[in-house]
Simulated assay, not measured.
Amino acid sequence: MNAEDFGRSLPQGLGVNLLVTDMAAMEAFCRDVLSARIIYADEDFAAVELLGSIFMLHAGHS
Rank of each mutant, 00 (worst) to 15 (best):
M26Q: 04
A25G: 12
H61S: 12
E43W: 09
A3K: 10
A24P: 09
F55G: 03
M23S: 03
A25R: 11
F55P: 00
L34V: 10
L18M: 15
N2D: 14
E49M: 02
C30H: 02
H61G: 11
D5A: 11
L19P: 04
G7C: 13
A3Q: 11
M23V: 03
L10Q: 08
D32W: 08
E4W: 14
F55A: 00
Q12F: 13
M26G: 03
N17T: 14
M26K: 06
M56C: 08
I39M: 07
L18F: 14
R31D: 08
L19N: 14
Y40R: 11
A46V: 02
E27R: 12
D5C: 09
C30Q: 04
V20P: 01
A41C: 13
D22F: 12
E43Y: 10
V16L: 10
F29K: 06
E43T: 11
S53Y: 08
E49T: 00
V33Q: 04
M56P: 01
N17P: 04
I38W: 07
S9W: 05
Y40G: 05
I39C: 05
E4G: 07
E4A: 14
D42Q: 07
F29H: 13
M23L: 08
H61D: 10
E27Q: 15
S62M: 13
S62H: 15
M23W: 06
N17K: 15
V16K: 03
L14P: 01
R31V: 03
S53K: 07
D42M: 06
E49H: 02
R37C: 11
D5Q: 06
E4T: 12
G52K: 00
G60Y: 06
F6K: 01
E43K: 12
L34K: 04
I54Q: 02
P11I: 05
R8C: 10
N17R: 15
E4P: 01
G13T: 02
T21L: 14
L57G: 00
G7N: 12
L51S: 06
L18A: 15
G52L: 01
A59K: 01
L57E: 00
A59S: 03
